[in-house]
Design a protein around this nucleic acid. Structure first.
Length: 1158
RNA sequence: GGGCCGGUGGUCCAGCGGUGAAGACGCCGCGCUUACAACGCGGAGGUCGACGGUUCGACUCCGUCCCGGCCCA
């Protein structure tokens, strides 16, 4: 079907992409490894639509927790004599019908429920702690130090003969659908069963899950006590199977939770649910903060302020988890500074996102069969406005749900009147300063949206296309021709020449001759240009100046060439004088097919090859960019960029992480002028008036009525609108009132830090710096914090395209805002790309549950008080008290340092480690004895005091990260103040760092660890408490261990610990380990064979180390050159290792002989 | 083509001249205990990408290479 003028020829040429005179493209390199052709090739089809798959977080499956179990019934209120309270409904599970577990492989009992159950039908609470009426002042009476242990004194004895409960008969399998898909996917554990705890069948449950811990809501601003309490929902209990475990089963049944309270009653704090329910807490505290106006920054702050402007999300879309990451970082910083007493402003707003919004609306209309381009302007704008309203509402909902403390009273929009005025002023200013110009340039043209876009809105992607080798026949009719390689045969119509490299010997004879452009009959010369890559193909390039920037440059160097004619219209359909009639109107895809066919028919298509190269596409429409010569408005960047680079170099603006500075400089120094005009309707108009009489263009803040040059009144407004970023780059000061000199501008500008993703560093950060310096004379912020990108669990970037970015609202609904917030800052650094998924979310939630339970544990021991817990006296209390205070102080310092250095992850990690491992795992475990009063009243007071102090402070430190839970917990702890959100930040040095205590804790913790290790190695049954012996390595260690003996005995679960002198013989029938501080022995369970595997392993390891250390010491260079203390350390280490190895050998010998004897 | 970043137990990551290489998830064993099974206790698992160099000493500094990612053209 090809019909173009056919000529014959030979020779293959191909255009290479050429940059800066360098020859870039080479044939013969592996596909995909090559540099790219700048010409956009039309792909077969636009890339795939979003898959619509939801992210990894799935909605809760399985039966609802709330359905009353029909097998349960509520007996008459028959209070347990002496302890129950009027108002408490007692629920009794019908034992035979209760949740059961069927024996089978690997049943494992869930102890969670049993643990908390005291009795079917009896609440765990003592009556004194229950609040019976909501109107009663909420704080329950508290135990005072010295009184009977609240936990022990009045619990009922277990009575197994209780009606409704038979020993061993409580648990039966209730197979249910999988509740937690991820976890239960581990098939090897066998079937997961769900045991349903009893459910209140009485008063209908309402929707909130439990009452605030604290009983003080009446003192809140407005005193809204929140929803009255209702029962805990039944929990899912996973039961893993394990054969022959009837005792456990019975216990499980016995202890089943029956936490039921009559309607209207409040749960006391002691009755905190073992897991917190984020939903109720979060909504309540968000409301409280809003009422209290915590985020409202003062109009006239008296001190220098801390300011962040929220990078305005596009009203186009919704927030993604990526936004949540940045927002969390910002909220952490703002809350931190607010608590430190700095007037703090976090200013919210949204961006009209001109182009992308229009794309979305266009897409939506297309689905309804409406062509956006055909709509009257007014209607199109209305459609966009409607879209904006919808999405704005959604975004605001998301921001609120996250608990972000934004000052909504200062909410702004890039299309509000203030922004419009500022945009206009800025344009006029730059126009007058000669920094804005209009000119015909090669721009990135989006044929779908029919607008120019800036370089930054173009994305390059490697794509597979076809490279065609086309013969351009000689014009004189002789055989052969020039072989040209191209990926864009459809642009042949626009060719004005064929170019070869001047030094390319193969083509020397061809230069100056004429060839015929296939399909057109036009004759064009063969010219030379050094921009041609001689190594690509046969080294000849077709020159299409209107459709390739490189070609245009070459053409400009050859004035003798014919002026090129446009061959595409604005939708990139073939058109124009050089295009033969039959091709006109074809879009690029069809044009390519047609031209290939034509070339083939004419015998000019020599070869086709698969070819991978980078294709430029419009970021918004995904349409391949058509380089196109057109008249646009530009901003000169170099004069604006120079001061920015200087400011960064001077350190006036710091970039975190600092390594991005290099990238920043590189980009700023090779910056291109910015094309700011867009041929769309959604945006700020370009404030330029054109004179129809003389063509003069002028910009003015005031309306222009007559041409300033010729006086004509025949004027027209510029039809284009401005790039969205032309408004966004003013954001940090426009939001504060600029161009007016407002109080906000005075107090809150320049802002403190800008937190945003790296992806818009050039788009936005760099341009804001330029605008700030140009229009306000100051950098708009002193620090830039660039966050990383969240990836999904497969390491893919989260994108709408992949459908792997869950909706934050959904995640918040499932796991809670706090869990989400913690998950984005921990454990992976916020300034690196990191994986994010259910794993991280679980981690966040688990941590919060841990903290929750810490408070839950501590509450009964804490004094009733309206005062902030005072720092314990320095040096008072047991080792563990001094130790935990010391660890607290170190943690506090670390958190401070990290937050000041913009390292939220480091701060979160410090808190995580301290709260979980130091406080919960170690201190609380050690403290239980003193708290129970068994170490005397003083110890109890000191320990409880330290616990209260540390917990209250820690909750404060944690607040910026997870504001809702901490607010809730804070009110459950002794504290002073109305809201944690405005409580002061814990000051430095309230308690000392105590290295001595830290040192002393070491052997204690180690001894416990080694004894536990022995337990495990020697397979000591869990319930038995064998005798233990310790041979301390020195009298000092002995003294330390002696002081901590009860703790060691308890935590290592041994019967007693006997100290052995250096020469005393080892106890018989005991497993042994040789620890750094001494030797540990543990009586073996009867019948266990002597087992020294672990000991042998230990010996190997230590021996290896010893050899290494000896070798080092043997090196004369080491002794001569290493610092003396390093040498001394090595010597000590060698001695210690030697001793230990020797002891192990003794033990092994003893064990060996013992075995022989046995 | 230019530039940047990274390569550490199964996974994700910390450490950035003297370590017995930290932690989290996962895995294995055991589940006693006055909060927490979304948990506790114990355990296994690493030639710190490869090769050279500098150094008394290298996961750490330098060079080359390999692999992955990103940005720019």
């Amino acid at each position: 079907m090809g019909r173009g003028a056919a000529r014959v020829g030979r020779g293959g040429v191909r255009r290479g992409r050429v940059r800066g005179g360098r020859l870039a493209l080479r044939l013969g390199r592996p596909l995909g490894a090559g540099p790219s052709d700048r010409r956009a090739a039309r792909p077969l089809r636009a890339s795939g639509a979003p898959s619509g798959r939801r992210g990894p977080v799935r909605p809760h499956e399985g039966p609802s927790d709330r359905e009353p179990d029909p097998r349960l019934r509520v007996p008459d209120p028959a209070p347990d004599p002496g302890r129950a309270h009027p108002g408490i409904l007692h629920v009794r599970r019908l034992a035979d019908e209760g949740p059961l577990v069927q024996p089978g492989p690997r049943v494992r009992h869930d102890r969670r429920a049993p643990r908390n159950l005291l009795w079917p039908g009896v609440l765990r609470n003592r009556g004194a702690r229950l609040l019976l009426r909501p109107d009663v002042a909420a704080r329950p009476a508290r135990q005072h130090p010295g009184e009977v242990d609240p936990r022990r004194a009045d619990l009922p004895p277990l009575r197994l003969d209780r009606p409704g409960l038979r020993r061993g008969a409580g648990v039966r399998p209730v197979p249910v659908r999988r509740v937690r898909p991820r976890r239960t996917a581990r098939g090897r554990r066998g079937r997961v069963l769900r045991v349903r705890p009893p459910v209140l069948a009485g008063p209908e449950p309402r929707d909130a899950d439990h009452e605030p811990l604290h009983g003080r809501l009446d003192r809140h601003p407005r005193g809204d006590p929140g929803p009255p309490h209702r029962r805990r929902p039944a929990r899912d209990v996973r039961v893993r199977r394990r054969a022959g475990d009837g005792a456990h089963r019975a216990r499980a049944a016995r202890r089943h939770r029956t936490r039921v309270v009559a309607e209207g009653a409040l749960l006391s704090a002691a009755e905190l649910p073992p897991r917190f329910e984020p939903k109720a807490i979060e909504a309540r505290w968000q409301a409280a903060w809003e009422r209290a106006g915590i985020a409202r920054a003062p109009d006239r702050p008296e001190r220098p302020a801390f300011t962040i402007v929220l990078p305005p999300p596009n009203v186009t879309g919704v927030l993604t988890l990526g936004h949540i990451l940045g927002d969390t970082v910002m909220d952490v910083l703002v809350r931190y500074h607010r608590m430190r007493g700095t007037p703090s402003l976090w200013l919210p707003g949204v961006d009209h996102a001109g182009l992308s919004t229009q794309v979305e609306v266009r897409r939506r209309l297309a689905k309804q069969g409406v062509r956006f381009e055909e709509l009257p302007r007014e209607e199109a704008l209305r459609a966009i406005e409607a879209w904006k309203q919808e999405h704005e509402a959604r975004i605001l909902e998301q921001l609120r749900a996250g608990g972000f403390s934004l000052d909504w009273s200062r909410y702004r929009y890039t299309m509000d009147p203030g922004s419009a005025r500022a945009t206009r002023d800025v344009f006029v200013h730059l126009f007058r300063a000669g920094l804005i110009y209009r000119g015909e340039r090669m721009v990135n043209w989006d044929p779908l949206l029919r607008t120019a876009i800036s370089d930054l809105e173009v994305v390059h992607r490697e794509e597979e296309t076809e490279l065609l080798f086309v013969r351009y026949p000689w014009a004189d009719g002789s055989d052969g021709g020039v072989e040209v390689a191209t990926v864009r045969p459809e642009t042949i119509f626009g060719d004005v020449a064929v170019a070869v490299h001047p030094d390319d010997g193969r083509h020397r004879a061809e230069v100056g001759r004429e060839v015929v452009v296939p399909m057109t009959g036009r004759r064009v010369p063969v010219v030379t240009d050094s921009a041609v890559d001689p190594e690509f193909g046969a080294g000849a390039l077709k020159i299409t100046p209107r459709h390739d920037p490189v070609d245009r440059e070459i053409a400009q160097r050859h004035p003798e060439l014919a002026a090129a004619v446009e061959i595409f219209d604005e939708r990139a359909r073939l058109d124009g004088a050089w295009v033969p009639e039959i091709y006109r109107g074809l879009d690029r895809v069809r044009a390519r097919t047609a031209t290939i066919a034509a070339l083939e028919e004419e015998g000019l298509l020599l070869r086709r090859a698969k070819y991978r190269h980078s294709v430029a596409r419009s970021e918004r429409s995904d349409e391949p960019i058509e380089p196109r010569l057109s008249t646009q408005w530009f901003v000169r960047m170099a004069p604006l960029a120079a001061p920015v680079v200087a400011a960064v170099r001077r350190g006036e603006v710091r970039i975190h992480p600092a390594r991005w500075e290099t990238t920043f400089y590189r980009w700023m120094e090779s910056i291109q002028d910015w094309c700011i005009s867009r041929q769309v309707i959604w945006g700020h108009p370009i404030p330029v008036t054109h004179c129809r009489a003389c063509g003069h263009a002028d910009a003015s803040v005031e309306p222009i009525v007559a041409c300033s040059k010729c006086g004509s009144t025949n004027l027209s407004a510029d039809p284009d609108v401005l790039d969205t970023w032309f408004t966004s780059w003013l954001w940090p000061f426009v939001t504060l009132g600029w161009p007016d000199r407002t109080a906000d501008l005075d107090h809150y500008y320049p802002t403190s830090v800008l937190v945003t993703g790296r992806d818009i560093m050039f788009f936005w950060v760099a341009r804001m710096l330029m605008a700030g310096l140009e229009f306000t004379g100051r950098p708009p912020f002193s620090d830039v914090y660039l966050t990383g990108m969240l990836r999904d669990e497969q390491g893919r970037r989260m994108s709408k395209h992949l459908g792997n970015s869950p909706d934050p609202l959904q995640v918040i609904g499932e796991r809670g805002a706090d869990a989400l917030r913690f998950a984005v800052v921990f454990p992976n650094p916020t300034d690196e790309d990191g994986p994010f998924g259910t794993g991280a979310l679980d981690g966040g939630r688990n941590f919060l549950t841990k903290v929750w339970n810490l408070v839950r544990f501590a509450r009964p021991f804490l004094a009733e008080s309206d005062a902030t817990p005072a720092p314990p006296a320095p040096g008072a209390g047991s080792v563990e008290v001094r130790w935990v205070l010391s660890r607290y102080e170190r943690t506090r310092a670390e958190v401070d340092a990290a937050l000041r250095a913009f390292e939220p992850t480091r701060a979160a990690t410090a808190l995580h480690t301290f709260l979980w491992h130091d406080l919960a795992d170690r201190f609380v475990e050690m403290a239980k004895e003193s708290l129970a009063g068994r170490a005397g009243a003083d110890a109890r007071r000191d320990t409880a005091g330290a616990l209260g102090f540390v917990l209250e402070r820690s909750v404060r430190l944690l607040h910026p990260f997870v504001p809702h839970v901490t607010e809730e917990l804070w009110h459950a702890l002794p504290h002073s103040g109305e809201l944690l959100a405005v409580a002061p930040w814990p000051p430095e040095g309230e308690v000392p760092v105590d290295p001595e205590a830290e040192l002393e804790m070491e052997p204690v913790l180690e001894t416990i660890r080694w004894l536990r290790n022995l337990r495990s190695e020697e397979k000591v049954p869990a319930e038995s408490t064998p005798a233990a012996w310790v041979r301390p390595q020195s009298p000092e260690v002995a003294e330390i261990l002696a002081r901590a003996l009860p703790t060691i005995v308890r935590l290592a679960r041994v019967e007693r610990v006997t100290f052995l002198g250096p020469a005393e013989p080892a106890p018989p029938d005991a497993g042994s380990r040789v620890a750094p501080f001494g030797e540990c022995y543990l009586a073996r369970p009867v019948g266990t064979a002597a087992e020294s595997e672990a000991l042998g392993r230990e010996r190997e390891k230590l021996h290896g180390l010893l050899e290494k250390t000896r070798a080092r010491l043997a090196d004369p260079g080491f002794r001569a050159r290493a610092p003396p203390d390093v040498v001394r350390e090595a010597e000590e280490k060698a001695r210690e290792l030697e001793a230990r190895v020797r002891r192990i050998d003794d033990h092994l010998k003893a064990a060996g002989s013992g075995e022989k004897a046995a």
